[in-house]
Structures are given as C-alpha cells and as structure tokens.
Nucleic acid binder design. Structure first.
Length: 212
DNA sequence: TATTGGATCGCC
DNA sequence: GCGATCCAATAG
C-alpha cells in the first residue's frame, strides 16, 4: 500500500503540487473496497489575481474551503450536474487548489464501469466530471480531510506501480516513466487575458486518459 | 427576489 | 454541434 500524502505536500506552491500529483494514486474507499486511479491531468487555480479561480474576489459560501488549510477537498458542481474534485493547497487565507481532471483506472474498474455505464474503459475517467462520477465523489464530501485516510486520499505510487505492472490499466507505458507537458487551462474563456495565458494545466504525455 | 451563466458531458 | 440542468453569484 502506498503512503498517504501528508499535509506538508499540499502546503507547497500550487503549480508544484499540480505537477507532482501526476503519477500519484487517487483512492476512494467505499464499503471497504478501494477504487483508484493514477492522476494524469491536473490544473492549478491560485491567488487573488487569477480571474479563472472561483476564489479570486474573496471567500464565498461555495469557495470558502479554498481559503482554508491545505490538504482538504474542495468539491463543487458545475453546469448544474458535474462534480469537480480539487485539493486545497498552500497557506491558509491564500486561495489555491488543484483540480483533478483525469485519472487512469487501477483498482475497482468493474465497479467504476457499473456506475458510469460507458462502452470503453477510456471513457471511465477521462475528464473531471467523469473522475468524480466513477469514484462516487460528490459535494457531500466537500471539505473532507484528504490526509487522514477516510473516504478519499492520495497515495505515493512506487509500490503500487510495481504491483500493477502488466495489469490492463498499465498498457501504454507507465513502467517506462512518463513525460509531463503543460498548457493553458480548459473552459476558462471568462477569465482575463493574463489568467487565460498561464500554462497551469499539467498532463502526462501520450496518456490516453488525458481529457480531450 | 430574479436572472444569468458556468473549471462539462454525452448524444445527435 | 447542441441541450441538459441547477446552484452560486450578482444585480436590482
């Protein structure tokens, strides 16, 4: 079993956390069963001058978790139907979080498929709304601690990769390492120019679970 | 209190 | 390409 990432990890610069989360294992414990996947795509939302961030004008009822302690979950609904999972980063009162946009399924793939009702494995978790649906994460879990090993947490993956090598989820090159690419963030046309231009989306090159 | 528009997805 | 779907944010 991998080691649960401690609060110190989340207290680092949001862009560093976003990049370092790639390759880590996102775990959902449900009825004693593990559902999990490797994180392959993230986005950083950071500070008062980032007009793409919900929190740039200050705390509101929805986004107040982003102003709290690092290592907690910020979960909200967008477009009236999709739950988005973020991890809070950096210092208290500095609004910052990383959006988990895609994972590569590792454990509990059958259960994910049951919940998602899609044809291909690729469609299970290749987008932020798909990730939360597959892992049965919704805003009931907003504000939970991600460092205490309760319902949701993130693990180091070294031992996990070893045990999973050769498994179906790993065809495609995890055993050979991976390259990180970055780009502007998605779906933020409403933000100002400098915010739109920031390359705060991080993803694993050539991984098929990265969203389109 | 009313209006508006999303950190998307899935089907046409 | 477009409709779904509903809540938070803002304006009045």
């Amino acid at each position: 079993m991998g080691k649960i990432l401690p609060r110190e990890f989340y207290r680092q610069d949001t862009r560093k956390v976003a990049e370092e989360l790639l390759g880590k294992l996102l775990v959902r414990s449900i009825d004693g069963e593990r559902l999990s996947g490797m994180i392959v795509e993230t986005e950083a939302y950071r500070g008062f001058d980032d007009t793409a961030s919900h929190a740039h004008k200050g705390p509101t009822e929805r986004c107040k978790v982003m102003f709290g302690e690092a290592g907690f979950a910020y979960i909200y609904i967008t477009y009236g139907l999709h739950n988005m999972l973020n991890v809070v980063t950096e210092k208290t009162w500095f609004p910052s979080a990383v959006l988990i946009r895609a994972i590569e399924p590792v454990e509990g793939i059958k259960m994910m498929a049951k919940v998602r009702k899609v044809k291909s494995v690729r469609d299970l978790t290749s987008g932020p709304g798909r990730v939360t649906k597959a892992l049965m994460i919704d805003r009931e879990l907003n504000g939970i601690d991600l460092t205490s090993g309760g319902e949701v947490w993130i693990e180091d993956t070294n031992s996990r990769i070893a045990s999973a090598l050769g498994g179906p989820a790993f065809r495609g090159g995890w055993s050979n390492g991976y390259k990180v690419l970055r780009s502007p963030r998605k779906g933020i046309d409403y933000a100002d120019k400098s915010s739109r231009e920031r390359k705060w989306r991080f993803y694993v090159k050539d991984n098929k679970f990265v969203s389109k």
